[in-house]
Computed example of a mutant assay.
Amino acid sequence: MAVAIPLSELPVVDRNTDPNSFPKENFTSGAVVVMNKPLEWSSFHLVKFIRYRVPPKKVGHAGTLDPLATGVLVVCTGKATKSIEQVQQLPKEYVAKITFGASTPSYDAALEPDETAPWEHITEEKIADVLKHDFSGEIMQKPPIYSAIKMKGERLYKKARRGEKVEIIPRPVQIYQTELLSVDLPEITLRIECGKGTYIRSIAHDLGLALGSRAYMSGLERTAIGSFNVHSALSADEFNRFMKTYLD
């Protein structure tokens, strides 16, 4: 059984990597590719994009991003796929846009609102107070039914699409820090540092309820996973240019 390689020993491909000095065997022996996932691409779409361009066909990602989210997606190649769990355990940082006054079945903008509620009573002070008391440290969170979590061997979103009623059990997640970046009600922009398994969509939904309203996540960017950040992440075009130089 192959042993996972420590992350600190794996070569990293990002904007700071020189393709001319990147050893040819690195992708096969195991490399970490830091990508900036484009809007409307699925995480699997990005994995396929990389798989068709690197020498080894063994490629996997560490932490799914929804199609309507952008930002850091860490992709591992070759033997580095054994180290994916190490990446998944790292703290994550997100910048989320949350819109009050309506909720959706998916907790984001992928589906049309199914419920509405007043939002005019919400203030910046009330938001800050609720974040401090209800969304800090270890909290119990119920994932959205439109998620890839498996229940009895089947993804929840498949049950949701069939209209099945599913009892989802809340689970503990860790919120390290929240910061209000902007408030332009009914929309706010929130920075969130959190642990593995946290659904930002659920934070948006639950924040709306905690404030006596409804809310959904109207935009999301993952800005960091551990020390891997969006500023050094490669766009799809940049990765194409890297590989062209690398293979020439």
Rank of each mutant, 00 (worst) to 15 (best):
A96I: 04
L90C: 11
F135K: 07
Q86L: 12
K132F: 04
P105R: 14
D134N: 14
Q86P: 03
V95F: 01
E115Y: 05
E120P: 13
V87E: 04
D129K: 15
A110W: 09
A96C: 07
P91D: 06
T123R: 03
E124A: 12
Q88P: 02
E112P: 08
Y94Q: 05
A109I: 03
H121D: 12
K97Q: 13
E93D: 09
I122F: 11
K92C: 06
E115Q: 15
S106P: 08
I122L: 06
K97I: 04
Q86A: 13
S106M: 13
F135P: 01
K132L: 09
A117Q: 10
I122Y: 11
A109G: 01
F135N: 06
A128S: 13
V87H: 02
I127L: 05
Y94K: 02
Q89A: 11
Y94P: 05
I84H: 02
L90V: 10
D108M: 07
K132N: 09
E125D: 08
P113L: 06
T99H: 04
D129R: 15
W119P: 02
E120A: 15
K126Y: 00
E125Y: 01
K126Q: 10
P91N: 10
Q89R: 10
L111P: 13
D129E: 15
K126R: 13
T104N: 12
A102R: 02
A128E: 14
Q89G: 01
L131E: 04
F100L: 04
F135C: 09
T123G: 03
I127A: 01
T116G: 05
Q86T: 04
L111R: 15
Q89P: 01
E85G: 07
D114P: 10
P105G: 14
G101Y: 00
S83N: 00
E124T: 09
T104W: 11
E120R: 15
S83E: 00
A109Y: 00
E120Q: 15
S106C: 12
H133L: 12
I122T: 11
Q89K: 11
P118I: 01
E125N: 07
K97G: 15
A96S: 08
A117E: 09
I84G: 02
A109K: 05
F135R: 07
